[in-house]
Amino acid sequence: METKRWLPSRYNAMSQADNGELILYNSYSGAIASFTVDEKPIVMSALKRDGVSGELSETLQPLVESGFLVGDDVDEDARARFLHQSLHRTDTMHLIVMPTEACNFRCTYCYQTFPQGNMKPEIREGVKQFIAQKGNSLQHLSISWFGGEPMLAFDVIGELSESILDTVAEHNISYSAEMTTNGYYLTPDKFRSLLSWNVRRFMITLDGMKEFHDSRRFLAGGGETFDTIVGNLKAIKEIDEEFEIYIRINFDEDNLGNVQPFLDYLGEQFGHDTRFQTFCRPVGRWGGENDEDLPICDHRVAETKIWEFTEYGLDKGLGMSSIIESAIMPSGSVCYAAKPHSFVIGADGQLYKCTCSFNEEFNHVGHLLPDGTMDIDYDKVAFWVTGGEDKDTGCQACFFRPACQGNHCPLYRIRTGKRPCTFEKKKIKQVLRLIWKQNTKLEDLEAIERS
């Protein structure tokens, strides 16, 4: 009988933990595991190019189950293509809804133009009807409340949520919702209402301590915002319910030196409450009127600082956003713009694929009608959905391919012709080390609580 040969998966990445342990990750299976210093040489030997033959030891058998070792008859290219095709399943849907396109802030780096206010009644009816009509075929629905500033249209969110909750209850659909908000109107009372509508994840931006934040993220017409947002967050912390708040810190040359003192402050206020998590990103030239004047960081500095700040926060008791771990899972970094069953619904019923190019004609992919039907230009949808790995040999050879499928940011590829790679992929060793560190800290914390 021919002996079986096992080869290292082409989708593996490895890193080293602070205590010398080996960390392994596979972007097709999503598995992440660590190995003791004793196990490490055995595992490293099996992961050599020629792999390993015959009966597997107790140490190596789990590597097959986790996808780190694959049979020499496995077509890993086909696996990636199949994973990509699985995004076409019709029982999941992700809608990004803009209950208003107005905003009470005028952030220096914002790319939006705030063309209109609250979603019109006939479009609200269209959203309700569209989701109700989809009810029979859906197993999973997720809604992202976006804008503008969605909390300016709190009543619209309530009206739509009540209808959506009826539909998902009637059809037994798993439903999750999240919100990107500036946090200014996120009072504890309204927060409780949002939780009752199943909105449980919030992205809220604070760009440093008061003087730094208020100089970049101020009210339309001027006016500070830091104290109000932080006051809301402190009040929300006292609510004994499950939720996740991602505190996003946008950094550039102006506030680079203030991020760590700010993380010290956040650690004092929210440290060791796992519901509050950090998400650090460099400011980009995202299409706003101040783009040319923004003091953005050199990309090499930015790509290093993201993880330096994330680790600094971790050392202050602030976990990193769960977005980061989910971004390295299979299909986890595919942008919604590249997913066939994802649409952005504007306040006037205009349909888009991308949230960063509202004024581009190629992003105007259709209209939502009051009766719940979508009038869609499928050629434009195809333009967003069919790019990516299948035309890019670099992506096809990449260890991260199953996670992003070459579609991390279709807009970047359209505008520059270059390959869009994620911050996580570029520093995968750092990211794996931080995931290990966060897991280890959590386990230590749980052990302390038990004893």
């Binding site: 595991a33 986790s66 199949f82 699985s86």
Partner: peptide
């Protein structure tokens, strides 16, 4: 081997 994140199928992944 200590599992930090278990393997998932393509179906679960989406």
């Amino acid at each position: 081997m200590r599992v930090l994140k278990p393997a998932v199928s393509p179906q679960q992944a989406t």
